[in-house]
């Protein structure tokens, strides 16, 4: 069995049987699954692993699930799907208003769960990206579900940090992102002054993606501020 190479999913639930079932299922669907049983573990895993998507139970032993949503949203817009036995309308509204992207009431069918995971990844790629979680601009093509990057139809191998940086740009197409913001999104909240890291990785990304790294077509420099992903189609 080959190692899964798809999107990284963090599953947070205090019920080990649920964790085991969801992990087994999603792993077979080629996702890289990370699990956490408490809110603290979830936030730690989020900071360490920068998942592409979070499946979150609201009833956690230490933190309330809503608090986890709030803290994740302070750091980024990773899609969050809530899995909860709380089926009341106000619970759903509260979680969605806090920044959750979707809400699935337990018990759920695994096929529905998978479909909703795909939807969330698709929306993360771009609001109007059809039925696939694929971001396209020019010759660049990023499949967020499979974590695959292509330029002009050719696979490009990215390191995890390079991929995380590219994904952050994709989340905010055409918007100027400051050095500090990019550092915190990709490396973690304790970073902020280490702009040289960022310059190194942006240079590597350009080398792998741009036809002419000296005159970037995708990753533009905003002098004195930061960078911007140019997306003519968006």
């Amino acid at each position: 069995m080959s190692r899964p190479t798809g999107a990284r999913v963090l599953v947070v639930d205090d019920e080990p049987p649920i964790l085991r079932a969801v992990r087994a299922y999603l792993t077979r669907r080629d996702f890289q699954v990370e699990t956490a049983e408490t809110g603290a573990q979830a936030l730690d895993a989020y900071a360490r692993r920068r998942p592409d998507l979070i499946l979150l139970d609201l009833s956690l032993p230490d933190l309330d699930g809503c608090e986890v949503i709030r803290r994740v949203r302070d750091r980024g817009n990773t899609p969050i799907i809530v899995l909860s036995v709380r089926g009341a309308e106000q619970d759903k509204v509260a979680a969605l208003d806090l920044g959750a992207d979707d809400y699935l009431t337990k018990p759920f069918g695994v096929d529905e769960l998978l479909a909703r995971v795909r939807v969330a990844l698709r929306h993360a790629a771009r609001p109007s990206s059809g039925s696939e979680a694929v971001f396209r601009t020019g010759a660049l093509e990023v499949n967020l579900e499979q974590r695959r990057v292509k330029v002009a139809g050719e696979d490009v191998r990215l390191t995890p940090t390079e991929y995380d940086l590219l994904r952050t740009f994709i989340a905010y197409p055409n918007k100027v992102l400051t050095d500090r913001m990019l550092l915190q999104q990709v490396w973690g909240p304790e970073y902020g002054g280490e702009s040289h890291y960022l310059h190194v990785y942006v240079a590597r990304l350009r080398k792998k993606l741009e036809a002419d790294p000296q005159r970037p077509r995708y990753l533009a420099t905003e002098p004195g501020v930061g960078y911007r992903l140019l997306d003519q189609e968006g």
């Binding site: 019920e15 079932a21 077979r28 018990p107 759920f108 069918g109 695994v110």
Partner: peptide, 24 residues
Amino acid sequence: VSHDLRTPLASIIASAGSLRQTDV
């Protein structure tokens, strides 16, 4: 009932749903 009956049910349904996958 809603919390404590649904929690084990969720595990059961997720496990059974996974087992039922024909393409895995």
